[in-house]
Each structure stands twice: as C-alpha cells, then as structure tokens.
C-alpha cells in the first residue's frame, strides 16, 4: 500500500467524522474507500472516536491530586496520634499556666472579626512582597492583593485583582488565589495570574509544579501542567481554553522586562499603559493590529521604548504631556 495514500485516508476519514471534510474531500474519500483495507481504516476511526468520547472525562481527573489528598489524610492521622500523647502533657502544663496567667492578667481579650491586609500597587509601579508562610509574590502595576490576618495558620487564601507572579512555599495547607470567577489551588509551585478588571478574561500560566483551577464553589475545573496557560473568560458560559506557551513572557516582568512575542500592538499598548501610567491611542485599526516581538525594559523611560518600537515597526508616535491627567500617546502609520 502506498504510504502517502495511507496517511491521506486517515486524514480524510478523521476530517469526515468531525464534519470537517469539504465536498471534494468527501468524494476523494469515497474513491479511496473502495479499497477494502481503507474501509477498515474507516472502521478503526469510528471505533477510536467512540472510545475517545468516553475517555474525555479522564481529562479532568488527576491521579496525582487524588494521591496528594490521601497522603495528606494519612499524615493528619499521624499527627493526631502524637497529639493524643501530647494532650496529657499539655493538660498539666495548661493547669500551671492558667494559674499564673490568672494572677498576672485578670482580663479577657474581646474576639475580633478577621482583619484584611491589602497591598495596592499603583499604575506605573511594581512591588514584591513575602507572605507569612514564605511565599513570594511579585505584583505588577495596577494590582491589589488582599489576605486576612489568619493567613498561614488555618488556610492560605489571597485575593488578586491585577497581575501577579507567585512562588508558593510548599506546605500541606493548600494555597488558594481568588481571581474573578475562579480560584487557583496549589500546594507549592510557581505561576503567573492575570485578572485585570478591564479585561474580559483572567489567565493563569504555570511555570513549574501543578495547579488546579476551581470554580467559585471550589470545585475542580481543570489542572495545568508546566508551560500550560488557561484562559478563563469572565462570561462563565464561554469555554475555558488551555494552550501551551513560552512562560518567559509571563515571568519576565518581575525582572523589569516586558517580553512580547508576536503580539498585537493593541495588547502591547495595554500593558505599557499600566506600566508607565499613560494612555495610548491608535489612529486606525490597521496600525493597532501590527505585531511586535521584542523586549521593553522597565527602567528606560517610555519615550525611549516607544522610539525603539516605532523604528522597528516603522510607525509614528505623538506625545502629549498633560499636567494633571495621564500623558497621552497617539500611534499612527
């Protein structure tokens, strides 16, 4: 049998079953199918298609996470055992302690509702913080990170509005990040999250380790592997999609660089607006769709970066310095 012919029948047969074959291709397939071996290929395709339908559900399963949960439980069990032994010792120490304390302070602390800490990074700046558990977070321009004062003791929950890069310290307590409609759940890993209110989606990019994406109720939606990026539309009815990306573009900014890989100028502009606290307009749609690949250094003033981009793409940028409002840049062909 001819090798290319063989590949062709697989290609056409599969396209046909997914309703992707055009009229001519259908006829070509018909011709090829007159051969009995090719007829068999068609049967195989149908069989695999049917099985794949039953296999898809495994896509949302993770043997790794299941085991993680079980072994966590086993560990808890061990701790409990130690605790029962410790209990007796503790009772004795506690009895002494209470006696001493009563003598010293005869007062009770009022119970308080949780207090939230909020870290806010204005446009044009970025910031790096280390949380109580040792987790490091880089906050990009125009970002707010919020967490309660109980962080690190019973849970590790933070809320993110904007863009941040996380290096999560490994611990048995899951680290959870609330973003828009979703929640990111990890044990210890590095990932980037983007959830700006003025975008119509949020986005998580995994650099190493593994993360689980939950819905608002904390139910698992999907898992990411290193280098995968998930796009979560704000409109929950829309499909979430996962793609493979070069993670360098999502972690470079923590070192003061923004890398762009063949991105439309309109998207480049949106990031530069936040970073430099300016407004960028385009004179035509045509110029906003020009694609740019390159690195913008944060410590360079914006006019220098703009000049470089303009020269590379042969476009023009016009500046308008404003005293009380943001500076405005207009880009034209």
């Amino acid at each position: 049998m001819n090798k290319t012919n063989q590949d062709r029948i697989w290609e056409l047969g599969v396209a046909n079953i997914y309703n992707e074959a055009g009229k001519e291709e259908k006829e070509e397939l018909k011709l090829l199918s007159e051969n009995a071996d090719n007829e068999k290929v068609k049967e195989s395709i149908a069989g695999i298609r049917e099985k794949l339908g039953n296999t898809g559900s495994l896509q949302n399963s993770s043997s790794l996470l299941s085991w993680e949960k079980i072994s966590q439980h086993l560990r808890k069990k061990q701790i409990k055992l130690h605790l029962t032994l410790l209990k007796y010792a503790a009772i004795i120490i506690f009895a002494f302690g209470v006696g001493i304390l009563f003598q010293k302070y005869w007062s009770f602390k009022p119970t308080t509702s949780p207090v939230y800490t909020e870290v806010r990074v204005p446009f044009g700046q970025m910031s790096e913080i280390t949380l109580y558990d040792g987790t490091r977070v880089w906050l990009n321009s125009g970002t707010t990170l919020r967490y309660s004062d109980s962080f690190g003791t019973s849970d590790r929950k933070v809320e993110l509005i904007g863009e941040a890069f996380f290096k999560v310290m490994k611990s048995e307590i899951p680290f959870r990040v609330k973003i828009k409609n979703n929640e990111i759940e990890v044990l210890g890993t590095s990932f980037a999250a983007i959830a700006y209110p003025d975008e119509i989606f949020s986005q998580v990019t995994l650099v190493e380790g593994s993360v689980q994406i939950n819905d608002r109720q904390g139910r698992a939606l999907t898992h990411l592997k290193p280098k995968q990026q998930v796009n979560l539309p704000d409109d929950v009815k829309k499909k979430i999609t996962t793609t493979e990306v070069n993670t360098a573009f999502y972690e470079s900014w923590i070192n003061g660089e923004i890398k762009f890989d063949n991105e439309k100028l309109v998207d480049v502009a949106r990031r530069m607006e936040r970073w430099y606290n300016v407004e960028i307009f385009f004179e035509s749609e045509e110029v906003s769709a020009v694609r740019f690949t390159g690195t913008v250094l944060k410590n360079k003033p914006i006019d220098q970066s703009m000049k470089a981009i303009c020269m590379l793409l042969s476009i023009n940028a016009e500046y308008q310095n404003n005293l009380n409002t943001k500076d405005v840049i207009t880009i034209s062909k």
Binding site: E11, G13, V14
Partner: peptide, 9 residues
C-alpha cells in the same frame, strides 16, 4: 487536519 489524521493513526 494533518495532525488529526496522524493522531488517530
């Protein structure tokens, strides 16, 4: 299209 055929094969 090519990749789909290849995958199935």
């Amino acid at each position: 299209k090519t990749q789909m055929g290849r995958a199935y094969k």
